[in-house]
Design a protein around this nucleic acid. Structure first.
Lengths: 119, 119, 119, 119
DNA sequence: GTGGTCTAGACCACT
DNA sequence: GTGGTCTAGACCACG
């Protein structure tokens, strides 16, 4: 699995977003066991504590749950994962729009700008 | 002047962005004196230290300069302000696109999503 | 036999408590052979290792003993089982009281609260 | 301030409970600044990271919020704190009752036992 | 082996 | 000085 973490942003929310998408998309299915904290930490090149914190946050959102001594498992409610992803996407877009508008762009200008984006 | 600061983001860069736009748009004209650090701090409801730091950063970008005992003045090169704004807008869009793509969206889907954005 | 294990608590101590009560109450009588580790593990839906560990802990308390190649048997001293149960109950109550008092409740308030408990 | 932490239980939830009560009872009032992470860590004799985690959990419950570079402040909705405390007390009592009943006690026996508790 | 919790200590951005 | 994030490493309980 590729992680492509952006070093300029905090790791935790990035992992949260990626895992939320993986769950919502069915890459990780309900009931399935996730890679262990330590293994995922090695894969992603981060500290196990950071992965642990990420899992706890996903737990708080109801996406996954832990079984002591066994591992972390995907929860049985796929809708929650989709809602989480939707919420993430919305907040990202809201922030982008908000900041662009604060800088004087209208919605139409933003759309035009986005259409011609090629990077 | 309205400031509309987002409490969830750091104040300094927000002020930088807003002032850059004001200068680029001609709201503050070349040679014009900006409001004093203290006054602007009161208006925006932030710490004077933060305004001071903001001014220093705009100074570093070549947008404004200070005169001891007098205040801060807009520099005489309007192009620099426009470049600064352009650079800010590009980096915001690059970040938004990068994160959306990492979440599995294609450029077309992003455009579609942006078009239907109504918040 | 119903086990009603609480998934949020460690399994081992739960099994210990339940078996202690069963022995103290005479459900399992002195000299009687307990279900095998594997059978009990299947019934309770837990790992055989966990049952094994539970039996060892009950052994350490003097409630049961093992016969190589045969199984686990209830010890001949019923008083020990009753003492074990009493000790468990006391520690649970002490913990509950301690925490409630730390949260500002007096003994009278706790009693009142307990009386009206209906869940 | 006395903290009386129980060394046998995890620190984080203990701090959460104590702070929730302090907020609900008005010891810490809406808008008031809490002791800094580091200061509270020294007072309670724990690691700053643990206090940070506690504060984040209280934040997730909507009891407090942070201002970067300034501190943590009590939220403006006193009801949430009372609800949080109520929820903590209920879960403690539910757990106690559940375990006692699993050990064969009836509600009446539990009440009787609690009434005669003197430790 | 697994998750859960904690300490220690570092660096950053912000006030 | 404050909070925010992360690494490193330890110990425990559980399976």
């Amino acid at each position: 699995m590729k992680w492509n973490l952006d070093k300029k942003r905090p790791v935790c929310p990035q992992l949260c977003e990626i895992l939320s998408v993986k769950i919502a998309s069915g890459y990780f299915k309900p009931g399935e066991r996730l890679p262990s904290v330590r293994e995922l930490a090695v894969q992603a090149g981060v500290n196990p504590n950071t992965v642990q914190k990420t899992f706890e946050q996903l737990d708080a959102k109801g996406l996954i749950f832990s079984v002591r001594g066994s591992g972390w498992y995907v929860n049985d409610n796929p809708q929650e994962a989709k809602d989480a992803v939707k919420s993430i996407v919305e907040s990202k877009t809201a922030e982008y729009f908000g900041e662009m508008k604060k800088m004087g762009f209208t919605k139409e200008e933003i759309i035009e700008y986005v259409k011609e984006w090629n990077k």
